Simulated assay, not measured.
Amino acid sequence: MNRDYALDGEAARLAVSEGRAGPAWYRPRVDPDSIRALREKSDAIALRDTALWLGLMVLSCGLALWLWPSWWSAPFWFVYGVLYGSASDSRWHECGHRTAFKTAWMNAVVYQIASFMLIRNPVVWRASHVRHHTDTIIVGRDPEIVAMRPPDLIRLLLNLFGIVDTIHLVRRMFLHAGGRLHPEESTYVRESDRGKVFLIARIWLAIYVATIGLSIWLGSILPLMVIGLPRLYGAWHHVMTGILQHLGLAENVADHRLNTRTVLMNPVSRFIYLNMNYHLEHHMFTMVPYYHLPKLHELIRHDVPAPDPSILAAFRRLMPVLVKQLRYADAVIIPVLPDGATPYGPEVDRLRPHAA
């Protein structure tokens, strides 16, 4: 039987009434001065990484346009697509937290650009992400659960090409442009912010209509290869890495060590993902900028599960659990803590009979 993950349904009501909403999250005991130092933001580092991201986008897109319609353009469209459809996800995330840059307006500018690339309304999704951190993988509360139980593996596969997400987001854009919110969005978007939601959606819709119109006028798909379609053909990396954040781990717990994983990744993926592979660390200390997460990892590694050593290793551990969840939705991974770590709380006892 499928579970009720609706944010305005019975599970949401029970999460509040039973005290699961807004839990007091476990944090390792660390020197406050060390955390304070890691929270320091740097315009220089964020500007360097942003300039490299946007510069590579301009270069790859320029070469793709120059070589179009030859198949020699394909590798450059591939690079451009990943930078547009995947690297934008981590920029959206970090600038949404306002931790990438020290200067506030720089975070705001990059956040708006990345939100447009992803077709994520910046007002709605900022509110959504606040809820995600407040109620991480709390059923009925978290709007950003990637896959419900039992998992829809076909949906996950389609999302490697951005298909399901993009259809969903385009529908929401039309809904917002018409001056309405989805009922679930109404549970976390403030009344005072709704006018901004509708205005942004109307501006975006005008841009997309103009791009489609230009494609029709030119008799070429080329304008859409630059704006819009990269959200589809470049989404695979952010979906691949996003799946590894929480999937297969526990629901309805108050310890991120049980519901969030860290995965060691290659330098290219870390650049695309802006070090969000250190996802457990990020959830425990959300105000630490992405460029300090490796140091945070070293600081708390004594009290958290060992990271998966690679993307491939993480999927090898995850996939059997997802398959098992098709038959037995309660199957879950319980990460092993290192010797000397603070033990899990009593909530882990209800998970142990279902450990996979």
Rank of each mutant, 00 (worst) to 15 (best):
92 W>A: 08
99 T>M: 02
95 C>H: 11
104 A>F: 15
144 E>A: 07
151 P>A: 01
92 W>P: 10
97 H>F: 12
143 P>I: 02
110 V>Y: 03
113 I>L: 12
80 Y>W: 13
166 T>V: 10
110 V>C: 01
121 N>C: 02
125 W>E: 05
113 I>H: 06
102 K>P: 07
98 R>I: 13
84 Y>D: 13
149 R>Y: 09
153 L>P: 05
160 L>D: 00
154 I>H: 07
132 H>S: 05
113 I>M: 13
135 D>T: 11
138 I>H: 09
149 R>P: 01
138 I>C: 07
87 A>S: 15
80 Y>K: 00
139 V>T: 15
146 V>L: 02
91 R>G: 12
84 Y>S: 09
142 D>S: 04
104 A>Y: 10
106 M>K: 11
106 M>F: 05
150 P>R: 03
114 A>H: 05
100 A>T: 06
135 D>W: 12
109 V>I: 14
143 P>T: 05
92 W>S: 13
130 V>L: 03
124 V>A: 00
149 R>G: 05
81 G>Q: 12
141 R>N: 03
153 L>H: 03
119 I>H: 14
106 M>C: 10
100 A>L: 07
167 I>S: 07
142 D>Y: 00
145 I>L: 04
111 Y>L: 13
95 C>P: 12
135 D>F: 12
116 F>R: 00
165 D>A: 14
113 I>F: 07
156 L>F: 00
135 D>L: 09
139 V>H: 05
152 D>W: 00
155 R>K: 11
122 P>F: 13
116 F>C: 06
119 I>E: 06
136 T>N: 08
114 A>S: 14
147 A>V: 10
82 V>Q: 09
92 W>T: 08
100 A>V: 09
148 M>Y: 03
89 D>M: 15
135 D>E: 08
167 I>E: 04
151 P>R: 03
165 D>W: 15
133 H>N: 04
83 L>P: 11
124 V>G: 04
152 D>C: 00
124 V>T: 09
158 L>G: 01
111 Y>W: 11
140 G>C: 06
112 Q>N: 08
86 S>R: 10
162 G>H: 03
127 A>W: 04
144 E>G: 01
